[in-house]
Simulated scan of single mutants.
Amino acid sequence: MKVLKEETEKLQKEKDTMNTVGPTSSDDDVIIEINAGGKVISALRSTLCLVAPDTMFSYMFSGRWDDSLTRDNNGHVFLDHDPELIEIIVNFLRTKKIEDQSSPVKSPTIPDGKKKEFETLLHYFGLSDFFYPSPLLLPLDIANIEVVQPHGSVVDVTKGVNKIQFTNASRERAHYFDFVACKPSLDVSDEGSFWKVTIDVLPDDINNWIYLGIIGNLGANEQTNNQVFHGGSNRSEDSSWTGFTEGECLYFHLKSDRLTMFTNREYYIHFDFFTFGAKISLEALSDEERKLLPEN
Rank of each mutant, 00 (worst) to 15 (best):
Asp287Lys: 14
Asn226Ala: 12
Asp66Gln: 07
Lys291Trp: 01
Asn162Ala: 07
Ile269Val: 11
Pro83Tyr: 07
Leu292Gly: 08
Gly152Ser: 10
Ser170Phe: 08
Met60Gly: 00
Thr198Lys: 15
Met18Ile: 08
Ser240Gln: 13
Gly216Ala: 08
Phe131Cys: 01
Ser256Pro: 00
Asp28Trp: 02
Asp205Ala: 12
Glu117Asp: 12
Phe118Tyr: 05
Asp141Pro: 02
Gly219His: 13
Asn19Phe: 13
Asn73Gln: 12
Pro108Gly: 08
Glu295Tyr: 03
Ile142Gly: 04
Asn168Met: 05
Trp195Arg: 00
Glu222Asn: 13
Val157Glu: 09
Pro53Met: 05
Leu285Glu: 09
Gly160Trp: 07
Arg258Asp: 02
Ser58Asn: 14
Pro294Arg: 09
Thr167Glu: 12
Val161Trp: 01
Leu293Ala: 06
Asp200Ala: 15
Glu191Ala: 05
Asp204Tyr: 09
Val147Thr: 14
Val180Glu: 06
Ser236Lys: 14
Pro294Lys: 08
Ile164His: 02
Ile210Ser: 04
Asp257Tyr: 13
Ile31Leu: 14
Phe252Cys: 03
Glu7His: 14
His230Ser: 10
His76Ser: 02
Glu295Thr: 15
Glu33Leu: 02
Thr242Asp: 14
Val3Asp: 15
Val30Ser: 10
Glu248His: 03
Ser240Ala: 13
Ile164Pro: 01
Ile269Pro: 02
Ser286Cys: 04
Met18Trp: 15
Ile41Thr: 05
Phe273Trp: 03
Cys182Trp: 12
Asp66Asn: 15
Glu246Gly: 07
Ser134Phe: 05
Ile31His: 07
Leu285Lys: 11
Lys39Phe: 04
Ala169Asp: 10
Ser103Tyr: 11
Asn264Glu: 15
Val161Asp: 11
Asp272Glu: 14
Ser170Asn: 12
Phe276His: 09
Leu69Ser: 10
Thr263Cys: 13
Gln223Ala: 14
Glu87Leu: 10
Met60Tyr: 05
Lys116Cys: 01
Asp82Gly: 02
Asp27Gly: 01
Glu295Lys: 12
Val105Ile: 14
Lys10Thr: 10
Leu293Val: 03
Ser236Asp: 13
Phe166Ile: 06
Leu140Ala: 06
Val30His: 10
Glu283Arg: 15
Asp187Phe: 08
Arg45Thr: 01
Thr167Tyr: 09
Asn225Thr: 14
Ser102Leu: 03
Gln101Cys: 00
Ile110Arg: 03
Asn296Gly: 02
Ile89Pro: 00
Leu4Asp: 12
Leu285Tyr: 10
Leu259Ser: 07
Gly152Phe: 08
Cys49Asp: 05
Pro139Ala: 05
Leu121Tyr: 07
Phe179Gly: 01
Ala220Cys: 07
Thr260Pro: 00
Lys115Ala: 12
Asp205Met: 09
Ile215Pro: 00
Ile215Met: 09
Phe78Glu: 13
Met56Cys: 09
Arg45Asn: 03
His123Glu: 15
Thr167Lys: 10
Ser236Trp: 10
Leu137Ser: 02
Asp178His: 05
Arg290Leu: 14
Gly216Ile: 01
Asn217Glu: 12
Phe273His: 06
Gly126Tyr: 04
His230Trp: 11
Arg45Trp: 06
Thr242Ile: 08
Glu266Gln: 12
Asp16Phe: 08
Ser25Thr: 11
